[in-house]
Design a protein around this nucleic acid. Structure first.
Lengths: 192, 192
DNA sequence: GTCAACATGATACAGTTTGTCCCAAGTAAG
DNA sequence: CTTACTTGGGACAAACTGTATCATGTTGAC
């Protein structure tokens, strides 16, 4: 049942419940997202929550589906390649610093044992890397980056450290860090 | 109560329970680590599990404490700096490919909302980066790496991608990937 | 070996949570 | 207006949680 084909009443109720679920997730973690608490926080009957989702994982999957992507805002197309990369990473970091980071942390644990959550997680996190990869690949094509560069690896080297510091150390990702990261990663690849 | 000061009987029971808890965590995730299931899988009375740990988080924290570190084996001290880095990352990758990766994934979600878990997670993951940082810093000191390199950032660029690919994509981390990563990261920093 | 201190097993208990079902009441749409 | 869909509210059994009690088994000092 896609949202567009749903009864407007069902849509309203589902939005109420998803909002409540998102609040619970942000404030108390995935374990707090139970049918009971979602129902209470949404002002809805418990049976209604069960009617929409059979288990906790299904709620969380729909939560991710609603979020669409962790960093949906495309970056400004700056002139220099390094600037475009920095801008892309900055939007990514902003999402990780905010609610996206907590949602992501909760999902990673569940995705390990639930393939539906894993699939939702992939959809949620594919956009940023894909965008970066395109920027890098374009740089190789137009000659601003040396030909030997593996775009996939470069993307990992740019995004990996952000995830690492956010998830493992709970760091706030600031522009200074991102700029240093981009400088260190991209500079050796510049062909000029 | 440290393990060394414990009654041997209590030690035996606790080890049984921790083993059962680790199995549950690896097989079914953090949510499956309940007092009841740990008791059943360890062949122990439920009350005994409560006697050792008041809640689920305490069990998981002790699990991390027992694991000591995600990659406890120190790497072979190879001659070339790049080789030492590669060896260190390889032991790290091995742990992430195995049980350590699943434990880590489960902990990351909980650490976001439980500071005890976060502290345990830090203890668990500090060794690898620290070791790498030392290797990098030594390389700067003895002149094999250029002076401008920030050891902390270099470590992030080496470890971050491993976490990223393991946690987000469930990749198996092989030596080819690690070698490419080290080449791309370390080569531009070599002073020779 | 005896004995006091400690740890466990077994059971009981109240309270909470889970998952499912039912039916009356409310909403949507032809 | 009328039919189909959705919700609210309640009931229910099952499982889980957290605590307590007490008899039994283990430990380690004497």
């Amino acid at each position: 049942m896609t949202e567009s084909t749903m009864n407007p009443q069902a849509q309203r109720t589902q939005n109420l419940m998803l909002t409540a679920a998102q609040d619970l997730l942000s404030e108390h973690g995935a374990e707090a997202v139970t049918h009971l608490k979602v129902a209470q926080n949404a002002g809805v009957a418990r049976a209604t929550v069960y009617r929409h989702w059979p288990d906790r994982a299904a709620i969380l999957v729909d939560l991710l589906r609603t979020n669409a992507d962790i960093a949906p805002v495309p970056p400004d197309p700056g002139p220099a390649l390094a600037d475009r990369v920095t801008a892309t990473l900055a939007t990514f970091a902003k999402a990780l610093n905010g609610d996206g980071g907590r949602t992501l942390a909760a999902m990673i644990g569940l995705a390990e044992w639930d393939e539906d959550v894993f699939a939702a997680l992939e959809r949620m996190t594919q956009f940023g890397p894909m965008l970066l990869r395109t920027i890098i690949a374009d740089g190789i094509d137009d000659g601003s980056l040396v030909a030997g560069s593996d775009p996939g690896l470069v993307v990992d080297m740019l995004i990996g450290p952000l995830y690492f510091r956010r998830l493992l150390y709970h760091d706030h990702l600031d522009n200074t860090y991102i700029e240093a990261l981009v400088r260190r990663t991209i500079t050796p690849l510049l062909s000029t």
